[in-house]
Design a protein around this nucleic acid. Structure first.
Lengths: 134, 134
DNA sequence: CCGTATCCGGGTGGATACTG
DNA sequence: CAGTATCCACCCGGATACGG
């Protein structure tokens, strides 16, 4: 089962699922913050098939506010998932494009998307049953 | 309340990455809420290798508060990821165990974990560079 | 077109104390 | 041991207005 590695005292590293998990400074939690927000993963997916401009992303994701679109793009740019290119046209246009890092993330993200679509009904059903009992 | 299915206004279903994405009522966002929280994915991973009791989970994840441990477990139970079994011993013990749904989620989650471990250095580097410029 | 600035309501999550 | 209950600080994210 879960056994702490006795290597270093004080380091809370646990073998989980065949992988060393650092419970104190957890890379998984760190990455999860990047894509666990309300719009982050959807943004990466939206750019999967090619670069898009700001206004194109707005139209593609109608529910997002202008503020959150900007902020989500900044966050993802900051952590290296996408790049921002300004074309000095008139009026100006800004293109957002997945980096190599961002594209490599599409592999696990795509698997997650597939799982969500397959099991979404089962989850909603479990939720409804739980709420009915309670 | 909910917009019922079918033709409301405009098609909000977009083909992304070869997958139909409903931007209005998005299953991906729904599932992401389940595992995008601060502790949710870590909880599922902690139970990957076998069932654990409440106090065992507390020791395994030292940073979590008692309140959030309970709440996270309830949320995941509600959506069908894990089951809760009370053994009427003295003192009582409660066992948490992944359901079939929860175990099936380990497949995409494991891929995500591996990606995180491989790329979190690149992310931290990108973040540092971005912050230095700004 | 592509943002920034500001305000603010609600939800998230930590700390603490108490129960069966 | 396995929780509940309560209070509260913080931050996320929507609405709105303004600027290059």
């Amino acid at each position: 089962m879960n056994k702490t590695t006795g290597a270093v005292k004080g380091k809370r590293v646990v073998m989980v699922c065949g992988v060393p998990m650092d419970m104190a400074n957890c890379p998984v939690r760190d990455v999860m913050d990047n894509i666990g927000g309300k719009w982050n993963s959807l943004m990466i997916l939206s750019l999967a098939d090619g670069p898009l401009r700001f206004s194109q992303l707005r139209r593609l994701i109608p529910d997002i506010s202008q503020r959150m679109l900007t902020q989500t793009l900044r966050d993802l740019q900051r952590d290296g998932y996408l790049s921002r290119t300004v074309y000095p046209t008139q009026p100006p246009s800004v293109e957002y494009r997945l980096t190599d890092l961002g594209r490599s993330f599409l592999v696990p993200l795509k698997l997650f998307v597939d799982w969500s679509l397959q099991n979404h009904d089962a989850i909603r059903k479990a939720r409804a049953e739980y709420d009915q009992v309670a």
